[in-house]
Every structure is written in structure tokens, then in C-alpha cells.
Amino acid sequence: MAKKVFKGRVICKGTYEGEAVVSHQGVNTLATFQKSALKNAKKVIGSDQNNPDVYGKNLTGIALILPQTIGSTTGGLVIQTICQMGINPAALLFSEEIDSLAASGVILAKNWENSKIIAIDKLGKEILNSIKTGDKISISEDGTVTLLD
């Protein structure tokens, strides 16, 4: 069977091989990351009560697949901060066009924190259905995301 491959637009390039966490709804950045960040935790455990896809899950070092981010305009700053703390997801993979808050976050992280967070958008809706939380994926520098066996 052919491998499932998705190609998107590279915003912050990098390579990754490992686990994916998939959110079928928009990820509320503040609600999801704030609790762990405030506790100065070594790992982010998703704390958005309204999003069962990420609630209670480890979000550090994984590839987070999502449509977009939603919620408070502190969102970008939250992404910048978790990158500065080194507890960020390794990659943010957006099925849609990246939203302005997430975009701010990854650009701030790259320019002001030298963060290596990977960000790819416009991967298409299908990625949300084809890849499941816990699946292993790889990411290439050209924006290709592959579902591994």
C-alpha cells in the first residue's frame, strides 16, 4: 500500500520523525499551554477542557496536527514562551492556512529565541483524518509529511 504523503507550505523548516497528536478542532493556544507553562513544567500536558483531542495529552516534542489555532491574542506570545522554555511541540502542522496568532508565535520564536520549531501549513483537511494520535510520521525540509508504517 502506498504511503500517505502530504505536502504543505514551509513556514519554519526542519526534519522530524516521531509521534503525532491530532486535534480535529482549532487548538486554543492559551487554554492548552498555559497551565503547564505557568507551573514551569518540563512537559506540556494539554489543559483545554473544551478540546478532548489534546486535553491531558503530552504536547512537548511531538508533531501537533491541527486545523488552526484559536482564542486569545496572547497566543503568539504563548508559543514564543514555550519555545523559549524548550517545552514546545517539535512541529506544528496545519491543515488550513496558518492563522495570524500561530504565525506570530513561530516567527517570534524563530527570530527572537532561535527556536527550531517546525511549522508547515496548507497540508489539506485529509491529514486530519488520515493520521491519528499516536501514529508515527516523518517531516522533511521541503514540507512533506509522511505517515510511517
Binding site: T73, G76, L101, S104
Partner: peptide
């Protein structure tokens, strides 16, 4: 106004 993030404001 766009939905700017903190810091970009």
C-alpha cells in the same frame, strides 16, 4: 485591525 498577537502589537 488584524488579530495581532501580543508582542506584534
Amino acid at each position: 485591525c488584524n488579530r495581532n498577537s501580543g508582542m506584534l502589537d
